[in-house]
Structures are given as C-alpha cells and as structure tokens.
Design a protein around this nucleic acid. Structure first.
Lengths: 237, 237
DNA sequence: ATATCTTATTGTAATAAATACATTATTCAA
DNA sequence: TTGAATAATGTATTTATTACAATAAGATAT
C-alpha cells in the first residue's frame, strides 16, 4: 500500500481469519510495533485497512487478505460493524493509525468480516508491510490486542459457529482438499463444542451429498490408513 | 434534529421496521419530497440518519426510531452494512442529502438495522421532520425507493426470516401483547412461507415454555372465541 | 327455538431423525 | 508375531415430524 492512496478516513474493514490445524481453531493476527516516545511496544491486531475512496466494503476486505497472504478466492463474509466512539480511545492506537496512514484520524467505524482458510494453503506470512501468524483462539483471550479487536474476534467466532451450524458445507473451507472423516469430525466437534459418536457421525455425513469418498487412502500414518474424502459442490448445497 | 448537530458525514444508520397486520408483513417507510429544479418529486425512504459525532451505531438507530415513532424499547438488531460507492450515485439522493444536512456529502456507508414493532402500538406517524406509513412488503418491490433501500429491505427480510427461524420467541415482538394461536400461526407461516397444519402447530407451540395460556378469551369476534395467550420471558428462551 | 355459519380445539398412527452402544479390521512398529 | 493405534461398521431405542378429520362453541339469520 502506498502513500498516494486516498483514504476514506472514517470507515475501515477488519478480517477475522480462521484456520483449523487438526485439533484447534486458529486465528491469523498481524504483529504491530509502535514507537511510543522511543519505547518500542509490540502487540497484535486483526488484518484490516481503512477503505479507499470508491472501494466497496467487500473489495476492501478481499484486498486486505490478498495483500496479507497472497491468497485469492477465500471465503469471506461480512458479519457486523463496530462503531463505538470509544473504540479508538487508546492513544497508542491513534498514534499507530496516524503513523501508518499519515492522516489525522479521529473515530473509525469498522466493518468486520470473517474469512475461512484451509490451513495447509501456502500463505506468504511476511509481506512488505506486515508479519502475520496463526494463534490459538484460547491464547487470544489472554493477549493484548489493538482497538476492540478482542471483541471483534469473539463476535466473529459466534458468527462462524452459527454459520457452520446452518451451512455445514462451510466446514470444507477449513479442511484440506482431501480429508478423512476423523478430520471432518474433529473440526465439526471443535466448532460445535460437542463430542460426536463416531458411528452416528458417519451416518450423518453419509447423508451429505456434497461429501464424496475418494479411491485413495491416507499415507504416512503409523496405523491403519483412513479413506480420503473430498467436498463436491452440489446444485444446492 | 437541529442544525447545530455535528455529523459524521461518512456513516449512517437505516432501519427496516417490520410490522404484522394479522395477515401480511409490513414495512415502515418515510415520505420524501425533493425539490428538483422547482419540480416536486415524491418517493419513499427507510427511516435513517447520518450518525452523530460520538454517537454509537446502536444509539443512532434507537434515536432514529424514537424520533420517528415516539417509541422506545423496540427490538433492534444490526444486520449488515452497505458501502457500495455507487449507492449514492443518484443525483436526486445527493440533492436530498445536501438539502437536509446542509453538508457537502459524497459517499456514505450505511449500517442497517431491523426493528420489530407490534403493529398495534400507537405510533406517532407524523413528526416534525417526517411522515411515516406502513406498506405491504409486496407493494414495496414495485415502489421507487431512495438510495439502495430496496436492496436493504430485501436483505433485512432475509435476515429477519432467518432470525425468527432460530429464535422463535422473536415472533412475539410482532404480535399484540395478548394473542390467539391462530394469530401466532398466521405470523409463523407468513415469515416461514409455509402452511402449517393446525394440530401439529399447536403441538409444537405446547413445547414452547415461553408461550403461556391466559384465562381470557378473545372478544368481539362473530364466531367461537379463541383462547388468548401471552409471551413470557423464560430464563433461557 | 332452530338451523347455519364460522372458527376453535383436540388425538392417533406412520414415518423420519437422532441417540446409545461395542466389536472387528488394518497397518505400523517393536 | 504381538501390541499399539486408529478405522470402519449395525441395530435397537427414543424422540421428533408428519399426515390426517371429527366435534365444539359462539354468533347470526330465519
């Protein structure tokens, strides 16, 4: 992002990017360093950006993700806007905003998105402008985050739990392209905070037309290999 | 609203206010008159307002509803933001904005809310600044609305259908304080676009702890009077 | 008073969906 | 070849959902 860009200084987008490492939900955060009276202060923030003049909200969110990870075609969904005037009350946040944008910034209303990423996709974590890392969701609760980003993550998690509940095929945005039923069940149970019975779960999945068995098995595991499955988009999933 | 108020000129809120008249869903719209080169042009818009400096989004939405209807304690839920740069492309909309706010207005990102109102609540339709009216949702599809308000209504309807589906007790925000099971079923079927069997529906409702029978019957109907019920907030509805 | 009209109220059987529960199979590694 | 680890699979029970129609009550008209 260059300095010539024209900002709309009152509106930003922030992305809560979720991944699943096989047993835990992860969230992607950006390292932030603030030079505060020559003391360096480090914390984390959500990937986000002030929107550009003439840029649609969804486009801004896509841009942020592409700039950050190098990825395109990511599942992205707007879930809520945050506009509490106090959300920009921390002088440290204002300092960081004004340093990075070269603008005098007052209040910012942010439009928040969730994104789901297959955690095995090769992400370029380090870009010209930022360094990203995956963090355990639990861990995040105890971390110091910029602005109201802790709250945004919490609401994003609620939203995505809810979405995955009513649109189970979104689960596949978080799984590798080929996956085992154990992986699927593990993810399902993680997001639903349940502990499914293996047999009942497989019966349930058998009814999902969009999960198809492959003629391939898992490899390199020190025990019986499981069958691999893939997600297949159906007319009306 | 007076002229001394300070606006945050890039962000507004708009409210999609739903009511139920016993057989149809209604939406509350504001009459708008634009003086366009001495030709008066009339159309409708959603109740809304640019947010004030230091005003939270939810507060702005509540303010709009109170200014408009005189009502407080209305169910209100943020559902989506609309920020397409083209949404303020119509010169008529810009003209109206600049006339009413006395500000030079470019693009506006709006945060949209749905509100549910018991249609029998006494609304003060005519305020100092506006005249409101209920319109059939069907009718609205064929009407000329300001900005992208037609789209906002459509999305608001999707959202509320969905919310009522997973939180059935929200239905009671749309019903009179005392209601019959026929009214409840009629509303339920209207929002779900279904046609429930009477017996099965009553069995379903019998399982809803938050619907309690009263010792009162309907009055003034030219046929057998139905029992009245009320909604009772339960520990965990 | 009686018939008629309109809407209210109620139960049962059939089907489908969700749950509880344990054994055998396969592969790798020691 | 044995042990360790995880994969794969079926049946009976319970619960939820659906389909379906006759009688009851109050108001109005004759």
């Amino acid at each position: 992002m260059t300095n010539e860009m024209i900002y709309n200084p009152h509106v930003s987008v922030d992305c809560v990017v979720f991944g699943f490492d096989g047993s835990k939900l992860k969230v992607l955060l950006i390292e932030r360093t603030i030079n505060e009276q020559n003391e360096l202060y480090n914390d984390k923030k959500l990937p986000g950006s002030i929107i550009l003049t003439d840029e649609d909200l969804d486009d801004a969110a896509s841009r942020v993700l592409t700039e950050l990870t190098g990825l395109k075609n990511i599942y992205l969904s707007q879930f809520r806007s945050f506009g509490n005037p106090k959300r920009t009350d921390n002088p440290r946040d204002i300092l960081w905003l004004e340093n990075t944008t070269q603008l005098k910034i007052g209040r910012i209303v942010t439009v928040a998105y969730v994104a789901l990423i297959k955690i095995d996709r090769k992400i370029q974590f380090k870009s010209e402008i930022s360094q990203a890392n995956w963090y355990d969701l639990n861990e995040v609760a105890t971390m110091n985050l910029a602005f109201d980003h802790a709250e945004i993550i919490k609401k994003g998690l609620e939203y995505i739990r809810h979405s995955l509940d009513i649109e189970p095929y979104l689960l596949f945005e978080l799984l590798p392209r080929k996956f085992t039923l154990s992986q699927l069940r593990s993810l399902y149970d993680t997001v639903h905070q349940t502990n499914s019975d293996v047999r009942n779960f497989q019966k349930k999945v058998a009814l999902w037309a969009y999960v198809v068995a492959l003629d391939e098995m898992e490899e390199g595991v020190p025990h019986r290999a499981a069958r691999l499955y893939k997600f297949k988009r159906t007319p009306n999933p």
